[in-house]
Design a protein around this nucleic acid. Sequence first.
DNA 1: CGTCGTTTTGACCGCCTTCAACTATTGTGG
DNA 2: CCACAATAGTTGAAGGCGGTCAAAACGACG
Lengths: 273, 273
Amino acid sequence: MTYIFTFSHRCCVLQQWIHRISRAMNVIRAIGAQALVSSLEHLAELSVGERMALETLPITVVSAAAGEEICLSGQVPSASYLILEGWISASKSAAGHKRQITNFYIPSDMPDLRSLHLKVVGSDMTAVTACRLALLDHAELLALTQTYPGIAEALWKHTLVTGAIFEEWIVNVGLRPAASRVAHLFCELMARLEAVGLARDNRCDLPLTQSHLGEATGLSRIHVNRSLQELRKQGLVSYGYGELIIHDRAGLARVAQFDPMYLHLRRATQQVA
Amino acid sequence: MTYIFTFSHRCCVLQQWIHRISRAMNVIRAIGAQALVSSLEHLAELSVGERMALETLPITVVSAAAGEEICLSGQVPSASYLILEGWISASKSAAGHKRQITNFYIPSDMPDLRSLHLKVVGSDMTAVTACRLALLDHAELLALTQTYPGIAEALWKHTLVTGAIFEEWIVNVGLRPAASRVAHLFCELMARLEAVGLARDNRCDLPLTQSHLGEATGLSRIHVNRSLQELRKQGLVSYGYGELIIHDRAGLARVAQFDPMYLHLRRATQQVA
DNA sequence: CGTCGTTTTGACCGCCTTCAACTATTGTGG
DNA sequence: CCACAATAGTTGAAGGCGGTCAAAACGACG
């Protein structure tokens, strides 16, 4: 697209642009607020007043590049993130430059919401892909929770579900064999992506390398590879180049011993095929 | 003690007994309320009104025998527990009658507080020892949280810390070698027990069998035994018959890679010796 | 077309599990 | 109070699951 300016038009055009940009920013902010509302509505009933209050919450939208550290363990942030787009991993690193991924966060998740009350964040947040994030100021958010019980409940529930996922991951790395661990991770991510409309027909984007899968399941990269081959050989999944397809949902859930109850999804998207 | 009744005194004596029993029940209830207040005060500032509100909360004190199932995964309780005395384990069982313990709860913990908002409980709660528990009705508790933000915040924080412990356990079973896992569990439990006044001088009651330790760390009973021998041989701990003594706190923390930050303890009891 | 990161394959090794037997401790009924 | 049973802890041997090392194949991207 090209624009031809004449002297007489310049000022007018400039004003037009300012208008457009400011409208665009409002749109972006509206997108953030809308995402927040719909994310919380999945968790609790919100009154009209609560919904309106959320929409007036000042929101800053920021971007993060793939691989970027969103925040590090030990930091004391003054705002929490809502993921609008992209994936974030939470990890803790131990001696010997090894790390354990403790969760993957997807759009509509609030990865470090815990820091709203616990102040200091407990794990490293890393952008797995390029991300668009809404920044929610802690002071503003706290004020909302103290005025609107429904908002407090929804946010609280969000942290509870995150905790329930942590608990299930303990079981995953603690007592399941390698292939089951990977299968379980696939089942969980598919269910969560479906719940936010990012998966259909047992198919979704999965922007994780086998190293990521290994760090999340407590396995070596190489053994993840062999586990994947096993799952493929059994005709359960296809996985590669950023896409996951589950061919036999019931079969995969069986080897994974997957029961989606712990995800507390409202929608009945988690039924076995 | 023997009591000799005469006809004329019987009625009077009976009344005396009723009086005593009802006074005793009030005492018990007061103990429960006091425990609740002090447990929550560790987590957030409570106003005088909030403290008083907590003290009027109807509390039922119940007992559980060692080994008893407090509640099972899938149930929808109408009350949550506060532990006054004793230990409770949370576990999830998978195929092949194996189970993974996901947490140990000690006095002042509220093991299934999550069910206040998530309704259905996600793990099996089993009394490790004989327990005295305070039952807190969900409806009453919810009403309190909606009126008193400080109470809501304290309860919320309690669930957040529980979640942070889950996350750390993922790391424990996911990437630490056997001896470190056991050492880490010891460090965590010692710190938590100290915080509630149940440990002094690096010494505490630890009513766990080696099987419990194994189920919590994702190790076989037998390998727990060998890991313990290793820790003992290095002069780090003594453990046996219900008591744990940490001889070299810094050394144990080193092999465990233990950093108590995730416990978010207010008291500075977690300093390394 | 060359480089880089990811995936794949093979060989070897070690941590931890399983099985089995034995000892120590706790609890219980005669 | 003792004998017996039941539970918990300990030890040894054998084996498997998954880790590490090394190198090749593959795909993405400039």
